[in-house]
Every structure is written in structure tokens, then in C-alpha cells.
Deep mutational scan, measured.
Amino acid sequence: CSVCSEPIMPEPGRDETVRVVALDKNFHMKCYKCEDCGKPLSIEADDNGCFPLDGHVLCRKCHTARA
């Protein structure tokens, strides 16, 4: 995971895991958050999703503030 540096592995008792890929980086679902404010990001293409800027994973509000 690009945030916590832990491997993305299935939880005990499970055969599969879910990971998020954004900007060629891999994330646990729980680690997929705005780099500035820490708001959890949605994997859907909506207002709560990722608004990347200069290689950073940001929420819409933080993207607008940086732009």
C-alpha cells in the first residue's frame, strides 16, 4: 500500500482482497484518503472520489484549494 507500506493481502479466512489503484499507486480501501485533509475517498466517479493533482490523491475541496 502506498500509504501504510503494508502488503495488500486477503483478511484471515478470505481468499480475495480489494485494492484501489489510482495514479499507478496501490491502496487498501481504508488507506484511500485525501493526502491533505484525510477524508476517505470513494472509488466511484463522483464528488467524493479522487481529484488528482500533480501526482497527489486529493478530495475535491483540497484539489480546488491547491489549484
Rank of each mutant, 00 (worst) to 15 (best):
C1S: 01
C1E: 03
C1R: 01
C1A: 02
C1D: 03
S2Q: 01
S2R: 05
S2W: 05
V3Q: 03
V3L: 10
C4P: 01
C4L: 00
C4H: 00
S5Q: 09
S5D: 12
S5K: 12
E6P: 00
E6W: 04
P7G: 11
P7Y: 09
P7A: 13
P7C: 10
I8Q: 03
I8R: 01
I8A: 00
I8T: 05
I8N: 04
M9C: 14
M9P: 07
M9T: 07
P10A: 15
P10G: 15
P10R: 15
P10K: 13
P12S: 15
P12I: 07
P12K: 15
G13A: 06
G13S: 11
R14K: 15
R14F: 09
R14T: 05
R14D: 13
D15G: 10
D15M: 04
D15K: 08
D15Y: 06
D15P: 10
D15R: 09
D15V: 05
E16T: 05
E16L: 02
E16K: 10
T17E: 15
T17Q: 04
T17W: 08
V18G: 15
V18M: 11
V18I: 09
V18F: 13
R19L: 09
R19F: 05
V20Q: 06
V21S: 13
V21F: 05
V21M: 11
A22C: 08
A22I: 11
A22D: 07
A22G: 12
A22V: 12
L23K: 13
L23N: 14
D24Q: 12
D24W: 00
D24Y: 03
K25W: 01
K25F: 01
K25V: 02
N26V: 11
N26C: 11
N26G: 04
N26E: 12
N26K: 10
N26L: 08
N26Q: 10
N26H: 12
F27P: 02
F27A: 04
F27N: 00
H28V: 01
M29K: 14
M29R: 15
M29D: 10
M29L: 12
M29Q: 14
M29F: 07
K30V: 06
K30H: 12
C31F: 13
C31V: 00
C31S: 01
C31M: 01
Y32S: 02
Y32I: 00
Y32A: 02
K33V: 08
K33F: 06
K33E: 03
K33N: 15
K33H: 04
C34Y: 01
C34K: 01
E35T: 09
E35G: 05
E35M: 06
E35P: 01
E35A: 07
E35C: 00
E35V: 05
D36W: 06
D36K: 03
D36P: 05
D36C: 14
D36G: 09
C37H: 00
C37V: 01
C37K: 02
C37E: 02
C37N: 02
C37S: 01
C37M: 01
G38I: 09
G38W: 07
G38N: 15
G38K: 13
K39R: 09
K39T: 12
K39C: 12
K39I: 09
K39S: 11
P40L: 11
P40M: 13
P40V: 08
P40A: 13
P40T: 11
L41S: 01
L41G: 03
L41Y: 03
L41E: 02
S42I: 02
S42F: 01
S42G: 15
I43V: 12
I43S: 14
I43N: 15
E44C: 06
E44N: 12
A45F: 06
A45Q: 14
A45Y: 06
A45D: 11
D46E: 03
D47T: 14
D47V: 07
D47I: 12
D47L: 05
N48P: 08
N48E: 12
N48Y: 09
G49K: 14
G49C: 06
G49Q: 14
G49D: 06
G49E: 08
G49M: 07
C50K: 04
C50A: 13
C50S: 10
C50V: 11
C50H: 09
C50Q: 03
F51Q: 11
F51A: 08
F51N: 05
P52L: 13
P52G: 11
P52A: 13
P52M: 11
P52Y: 07
L53A: 11
L53F: 10
L53R: 10
L53E: 06
L53S: 07
D54V: 03
D54W: 03
D54Q: 08
D54H: 07
D54K: 08
G55C: 06
G55K: 13
G55P: 03
G55L: 04
G55R: 07
H56K: 14
H56M: 09
H56I: 05
H56G: 04
H56L: 11
H56Y: 06
H56Q: 12
V57E: 03
V57H: 03
V57Q: 07
L58C: 05
C59F: 00
C59D: 03
C59A: 00
C59P: 01
C59L: 00
R60M: 03
R60F: 14
R60H: 09
R60Y: 10
R60C: 13
K61H: 15
K61A: 10
K61R: 06
K61T: 13
C62K: 02
C62H: 07
C62E: 02
H63C: 10
H63R: 05
T64N: 07
T64Q: 12
T64M: 14
T64S: 13
T64C: 14
T64H: 11
A65M: 12
A65G: 14
A65L: 12
R66H: 05
A67H: 13
A67G: 04
A67L: 01
